[in-house]
Nucleic acid binder design. Structure first.
Lengths: 107, 107
DNA sequence: CAGTATCCCCCTTGATACTG
DNA sequence: CAGTATCAAGGGGGATACTG
């Protein structure tokens, strides 16, 4: 999301700044299940551009939420997966999905 | 946040579209505690503009997450509070705060 | 396969002024 | 007090082309 300048330092805002951008939660929902390769992720996220996927992955990686493993082979093979730290987001994702479902059921 | 067009329909994305913009979570954190008046909220959210606060409140209201009660008096008095539906976000907010804290503790 | 490199748009956010 | 009305800026997101 989206946290820029003047947001006060607070735990909630920290979390949003880490995972609040447009595609990150969807990326994480995949990576929490198992490791994925780059193009595999591309195909699974309909509508995402390469640039945005790359940017999102880089940010999540530098924030320590996912890892990137480059097999250094040819043809290239890179694997993305969740870190122990990122695994702590599982409950959060579940709760967000739960609220989304509940919300829709209430219209 | 920030969910615009091509995000697939999924519960997680629904939740983000409802509460993912810059200030909404901070507004909700206040309103979940008790009802607040407009200027009271303004003062509590350092850096927010009137326009953004108004817009955020209107959206949250039309999404059924908060209510707006106009006392129709002079001087004006308006009260904002959480709805039953919005109250379901409590756990989510707590979890987000918890992850934010945990994240900072792990650096 | 797994990316860079550009260019550009639009939407959110913001600053300021004014009002019932 | 509780807003509305404008105008402006910035950057996240997107489209397209190219590469080791």
């Amino acid at each position: 999301m989206k946290t820029k300048k003047k947001l006060p330092e607070c735990p909630v805002a920290t979390t949003v700044s880490l995972i609040g951008s447009k595609w990150k939660l969807l990326i994480l929902r995949n990576l929490i299940k198992r490791p994925w390769r780059f193009n595999e992720l591309m195909r699974s996220l309909d509508g995402i551009s390469q640039k945005v996927l790359t940017t999102s992955l880089r940010e999540l990686q530098s924030d320590g939420i996912i890892y990137r493993k480059d097999y250094q082979c040819n043809p290239p093979k890179v694997e993305y997966g969740i870190t122990d730290l990122g695994l702590h987001l599982q409950v959060l994702l579940d709760q967000m999905a739960a609220f989304g479902d509940y919300y829709k059921s209430q219209i």
